[in-house]
């Protein structure tokens, strides 16, 4: 059984249809990357998994169980947590308090504040600081740490590299293998194709609300990806 499964999912923003009969499967223990241009529906897909949007038709299965009408906080309880686009850390809370919020549902697992500080040592000296004063990279590390505190089986990452320096992006991608080793499956959305292709086990290229191309990065040629990305 796949960890996450989309079955003919159609999602709308009011009258505007954003996803058309989307079908794909994410297997446990892999990094599944979604790439595509702006407005292709990648973030919409992630929001639907996280619970911010409800599909009008079709269904989403998590570990075989339909989740499309489950409230957001329940999804965290069964092991889906997200790193939202733009980080969305809690500015008035300290770094440590932000992490504690991530553990709000008390799911058991390998991730505690200690192991998060081990994963991202850059957060250690910042523990007592309010998150508002953190740099973009630090906030991104905190947002990932916060999501991990829920000990998710599936972590959703939306544009983790957006607006960050290359050295910081590298540091964040370097943490991915540690996540996989701890039993977390990663569903990542990226516009930065170069980076994500080096780590992903599976890649899906979105175009206008549909998956145009899907496969293992090693099996896909640059020409194929370019064609799917731009729809030419």
């Amino acid at each position: 059984m796949s960890l996450l499964e989309f079955e003919n999912v159609n999602v709308y923003y009011e009258d505007f249809q954003a996803l058309y009969d989307l079908n794909f499967k994410v297997e446990e223990g892999e990094i599944f990357a979604c790439i595509g241009a702006n407005g292709a529906g990648k973030s919409t897909m992630l929001k639907t998994v996280a619970g911010a949007l409800v599909p009008r038709r079709g269904r989403i299965l998590f570990d075989g169980q339909p989740i499309d009408h489950m409230p957001t906080y329940k999804r965290v309880e069964i092991g889906i947590s997200s790193v939202p686009e733009g980080r969305r850390v809690f500015p008035s809370l300290t770094v440590h308090e932000n992490l504690l919020i991530g553990a709000y549902r008390n799911r058991k697992g390998p991730w505690t504040t200690d192991t998060i500080y081990e994963l991202f040592p850059l957060l250690v000296p910042l523990r007592k600081r309010q998150a508002a004063g953190l740099s973009g990279g630090e906030q991104q590390a905190l947002a990932i740490g916060r999501a991990l505190m829920a000990n998710p089986r599936l972590i959703l990452m939306d544009e983790v590299s957006l607006g960050l320096a290359p050295v910081v992006i590298k540091r964040i991608y370097d943490a991915f293998p540690t996540l996989l080793n701890n039993g977390t499956t990663i569903l990542v959305v990226e516009q930065d194709v170069q980076h994500v292709m080096t780590v992903a086990g599976h890649v899906a290229c979105f175009l206008e609300g549909r998956i145009k191309l899907e496969g293992r990065p090693s099996e896909l040629t640059n020409e194929q990806i370019t064609a799917a990305y731009f729809g030419v």
């Binding site: 911010a52 947590s81 809690f90 008035s92 919020i101 709000y104």
Partner: peptide, 24 residues
């Protein structure tokens, strides 16, 4: 209390609080 931490998170950003497992 634990609820208090959730309340402060809601004050900062209610959507983000919900996506971290807070029952808004």
């Amino acid at each position: 209390s634990r609820t208090g931490l959730a309340l402060k998170a809601i004050r900062d950003n209610d959507l983000a609080a919900e996506s971290n497992g807070v029952n808004l």
